[in-house]
Design a protein around this nucleic acid. Structure first.
Length: 485
RNA sequence: CGGGGCGUGGCUCAGCUUGGUAGAGCACCUGCUUUGGGAGCAGGGGGUCGCACGUUCAAAUCGUGUCGCCCCGACCA
């Protein structure tokens, strides 16, 4: 499929300027526009995907020792102002409530853009001694950020996410925590969403307002743009100082806690759409597909229908212990219509079952990752066959995405090369001196930004020293650039 | 906030230039025939043409204003 090879090729196929993302999100019934600009309704099928992501990640968050809690939507405006960098970063995009109960409020309430402040307020009440630490919490919530330009799933005014917030005795422990959760995100992305990511550290210009260090995972979408898929922050003592979050150590001294926060959002659904798709629509990785197997019965007369549906139900009984499986027994749609419908919705495996198959004790299987039709698969041993196939589809989707990422990652050694190469999208690796002005220079000229300082460079790039592509000064770090969402 | 595009049955759009009171396809309802890659025929329901004002005997169509949405840009852990 040539479509997966070149980032730009997809844009040409689009109708009336509508993005591929919007097209799939709307047509596959994942989401719809709401009456309020920038907001979206997540429809049942889209929400089911979110629930899959959510339950997968929630398990991992709990396995790493965190507990869920819930903090309120409203934050006193004064809280946000306590941490200087934080307020500067978020004030422009905050929605503020000024009226309630028919009266102007004495103190305005910010609708949370993130919850560091209110959580620190509570932490300072709950934490007294080193024995109260570490405090490891997470919440699933909605947040609001008043963005100027929005896109379904990738950037909406209100979105759903999880935000982890932890407090630790030492800097080292907090840094380990931040990195541990980044690793959890990487696992979620690569093993469940089948999206390969680059993990690394954000530059100062991209760092979370109020953090000491921001770690991130970055994916490369099929249109050649990068997408920040998750961030994990070492907050240092910045919020602790602002909110006086202190504990008494073993020697009786009062100390500020060291903190982390980390989050991923419904943006991940956008990432899935923008990574796994073809001209027929969405392709969902089996590990997070709400429906993993769709069974389409094929029949003519009533008698045939009865036999076929009976066999479908038998198969479903066999499979339902291992798969999320559904029979599409709707009479008003033809088999052909159903084939297209479930392909658009990205169901990884389809079983077509008609009289001919029943006569031969076989089924027909169509895999969504390759659109390959597998005829005459014996009903005997079908469960084992499908378990293997499902794993293969999961791995294949990841492999395809990884290949795409590899083919669209280029090393460049000077600004001219950079400027030319970035036109076609993709990741560019290049040396950078560490100065914000050089990053800004390249951004002005090309719109591309440094996505991260990677933990690891691609295997074929081990050169340790070179020259900054903007200012030519010596540099010992190579970074990933891309145009990003 | 700039630049571009668009508002007409549920959806996609035609009609507007040259005013005469609204159409197509899809979807929906009924019936019959169909069903292995988006079924066919017949019949049927549904729109004060985003909103307001103006011009006119008459406005979806012309004028002015206004609201909203989409795309590009500015903005964005």
């Amino acid at each position: 499929m040539s479509k997966t090879e070149s980032p730009e090729s997809q844009e040409k196929d689009l109708d009336h300027g509508e993005s591929l993302l919007a097209k799939i999100a709307l047509e596959a019934e994942l989401a719809d526009y709401s009456p309020v600009k920038g907001c979206m309704v997540i429809r049942p099928y889209g929400y089911a995907i979110w629930e899959m992501v959510q339950s997968t990640l929630d398990k991992m968050i709990k396995e790493t020792g965190h507990e869920n809690a819930y903090f309120p939507l409203f934050i006193p405006e004064s809280f946000l102002k306590k941490e200087a960098e934080h307020v500067e970063g978020f004030a422009p995009e905050c929605a503020v409530v000024t009226y309630g109960g028919g009266k102007e409020l004495e103190e305005r309430l910010v609708i949370r853009p993130t919850s560091e402040t209110i959580i620190n307020y509570m932490f300072s009440k709950w934490i007294q001694s080193y024995r109260d630490l570490p405090l490891l919490l997470n919440q699933w919530a909605n947040v609001v950020r008043w963005e100027m330009r929005t896109r379904l799933f990738l950037r909406t005014t209100e979105f759903l996410w999880q935000e982890g917030h932890t407090a630790h005795i030492t800097k080292e422990e907090a840094e380990v925590e931040a990195l541990k959760m980044l690793e959890v995100y990487k696992t979620l992305s690569e093993e469940f969403l089948a999206i390969p990511v680059i993990d690394g550290i954000k530059t100062d210009s991209q760092r979370f307002a109020g953090a000491v260090t921001t770690y991130c995972i970055e994916g490369l979408m099929k249109d050649g743009k990068a997408l920040q898929m998750g961030t994990s922050h070492y907050l240092g003592q910045n919020f602790a100082k602002a909110f006086d979050t202190k504990f008494q150590d073993q020697s009786g001294q009062l100390q500020y806690v060291h903190q982390t926060s980390w989050g991923v959002s419904t943006r991940l659904i956008g990432a899935i759409i923008m990574t796994h798709n073809d001209e027929r629509g969405l392709k969902l990785p089996p590990n997070i597909a709400p429906i993993q197997i769709i069974i389409v019965p094929i029949y003519k007369e009533a008698a045939e229908k009865e036999t076929v549906l009976k066999k479908c139900k038998e198969l479903k009984e066999i499979l339902k212990g291992s798969f999320r499986v559904k029979i599409d027994d709707r009479d008003q749609y033809s088999p052909g219509w159903k084939f297209n419908h479930w392909e658009l919705k990205g169901v990884p495996i389809r079983i077509n079952l008609g009289p001919k198959d029943i006569a031969n004790n076989v089924v027909e299987i169509v895999r969504r990752d390759t659109n390959e039709k597998l005829k005459n698969i014996p009903q005997n041993g079908l469960l084992q066959y499908l378990l293997k196939l499902s794993t293969e589809i999961q791995e294949n989707l990841f492999r395809q995405a990884k290949d795409f990422q590899n083919k669209n990652t280029f090393n460049v050694s000077n600004e001219k090369e950079f400027t030319e190469k970035i036109q076609n999208g993709g990741f560019l690796t290049a040396f950078w001196c560490g100065n914000n002005s050089c990053e800004e220079n390249l951004k002005q000229k090309t719109k591309a930004t440094i996505r991260c300082i990677p933990f690891k460079l691609p295997v074929d790039q081990n050169k340790e020293e070179g020259y900054c592509i903007s200012c030519n000064k010596n540099s010992n770090q190579k970074v990933f650039f891309a145009k990003a969402y």
